[in-house]
Design a protein around this nucleic acid. Structure first.
Lengths: 332, 332
DNA sequence: CTGTTAGCGCGTTCAA
DNA sequence: TTGAACGCGCTAACAG
């Protein structure tokens, strides 16, 4: 496996095949206006030299990089990991590369990274749960083509999970089990995903005057969930709705350590259905957000944009309620 | 926030500032040989036009892309996710971008992706647990600069976790607890990581004739661990050493479902200390592999290579035994 | 200190 | 059908 002798260019191939640069370019790009025999000769020469056209040079002249950028707030979050995985594999199947950028939960970084990565790619897929709507609207203008995940902005293609409906389903599940005092462990206050959940709760409460849903400020990770345990126990609620599975797991762990039985004394429901949700003890009831699918669909939208076609309708996936063992009849 | 009027180039800036292209280039790159007043004028013009030099054009002329590629076998694996996160953040801190490639566990893809991504980046960080040594040796030649994670090849810089010592520590832990019949749930047979564990076991057995360690072919994920449960229970062993935490969790779940008590009837130890290991029930005893740190160190090595310096010594991190509740005294 | 010129490695007109 | 010339946008020689 002789490695490319460092810097073999199209001229080398041309020389070896005894043709001009243009012919090499044409032959290698499958241009039909080139004599088959010649084309063969060129390809042989290229193979012999282990030549491949420089992607960077091609990018410059063609105006496209065959690369898209993905900006996520936290690569440590299982949901974004799944989105990235789905996206990455889908893009790879279409011979596209993926540049990742982790904004480390910083909204400022997010903006900067989006703009910076966009310049070295053909488009940006943006996962920006925190960015205020007006800033998002302004940002996407300079980013096109853009695909949004779990956000919307004007006519920008987007794919999202319906957090609102999913949470409504979870609430209905708890209500059916007899729960009338429920606490909601809120995520980041100004995030869109949190707002969607609050909407669902407001609607539910309006429809079910017999039920009380109290909000407890919390967070988005294990620690936040564990830290909220005392407040949950003090609330007298029979069920807790966690912002996501991470929070639910932290809560699960902490309340059980305090001697509280789940689901006997307290039902706990999560959100996302991360891979580990089924391995908690008890196994976590949650709403399965098809994150990898979201990523794959985001790529599909992006590809359509890149091909100049109309992007498909904004896609909304409905997370499916996944009932496991962390929810049960309300304690009487 | 007026977005770049689509294609503002260095010429536009030059025109607006009333200078030549070179002066703009120099001024914007902080070349000290340019008149401060002029430089200021140029920068104002650039700012007014919202101009930034095209990274693609710069890449072509400078011969570097400010981007590195990371090839991992599976973006769904928590360990590689952590590596990617550590690497991504470290690289970002140095203004480098990261191209990710997921080889989907395919050795062939791995080779192809490594070569393909290398051409659009300044270097490759390779996570190739499966690639046979001779192929790896051949591959890295054409990839330089390369940094290897958990592999070694000639003088190629590498960072790795010492799986061998870590497993030895786990074995010692079990032995101290009185376990004399132990089963090892093996990962992918021909992987380097698995080989390291087998070595540790062989050494241990040689030193402890009183102890029996049987190998059970298994795999690397939940399902594999769960599927191995019957074999583990049938073996009569009092402790199980799982290839990784995923396997341990699958096993934990399955044996407990069969009425086996952990650690009363069976002690279980994992490997990696993925974020969820402390939330299993019982909490998992495991060896904490500092994956994010591994990623960050891999970037450090790569940066040194990129700067033309000597890469630091091959780094070996020792995973730390993290004793939790899934291990206890051997059943008598 | 500044402007002019020559590429970086390709794809793509335009003639021949 | 093929080749010569031009340009993608920029940086770095080379003069002035």
């Amino acid at each position: 496996m002789p490695r490319p002798p460092k810097g073999v260019t199209i001229s080398d191939v041309a020389a070896r095949a005894g043709v001009s640069l243009s012919t090499v370019s044409r032959a290698l790009n499958g241009n039909p206006t080139v004599d088959p025999a010649l084309a063969e000769r060129v390809k042989d020469a290229a193979a012999a030299l282990d030549y491949t056209a420089s992607p960077v040079a091609r990018s410059l002249v063609l105006g496209r990089t065959q690369t898209v950028a993905v900006v996520v707030p936290d690569l440590g979050n299982p949901t974004f990991q799944a989105i990235l995985r789905g996206l990455s594999r889908a893009a790879a199947a279409d011979d596209y590369h993926v540049l990742v950028a982790d904004s480390a939960e910083s909204v400022d970084e997010e903006r900067l990274l989006a703009v910076a990565t966009r310049r070295r790619t053909d488009g940006v897929i943006l996962c920006s749960p925190r960015l205020p709507q007006d800033e998002l609207d302004r940002l996407v203008g300079g980013l096109r083509p853009v695909v949004l995940i779990n956000r919307a902005s004007g006519d920008v293609p987007s794919v999202r999970a319906d957090y609102r409906s999913a949470l409504a389903t979870e609430l209905a599940h708890l209500h059916r089990l007899g729960h009338r005092r429920i606490v909601y462990l809120a995520g980041v206050a100004r995030s869109v995903a949190n707002a969607a959940r609050l909407e669902a709760i407001a609607t539910f409460v309006a429809d079910h005057p017999d039920t009380d849903v109290a909000e407890i400020p919390c967070g988005v990770d294990f620690e936040a969930g564990a830290a909220a345990a005392p407040a949950v126990l003090a609330s007298g609620a029979t069920a807790a709705l966690a912002y996501n599975d991470l929070v639910a797991m932290g809560l699960l762990s902490a309340v059980q350590a305090s001697g509280c039985r789940v689901p006997g004394d307290l039902s706990v429901v999560g959100f996302d259905d991360i891979p580990f949700a089924q391995y908690t003890s008890p196994a976590l009831t949650t709403a399965a957000v098809p994150a990898a699918e979201l990523g794959a669909q985001a790529w599909t939208r992006m590809r359509e944009l890149l091909e100049g076609g109309e992007p498909g309708h904004p896609l909304t996936l409905l997370p499916e309620l996944t009932v496991r063992d962390s929810t049960g009849p309300a304690a009487t």
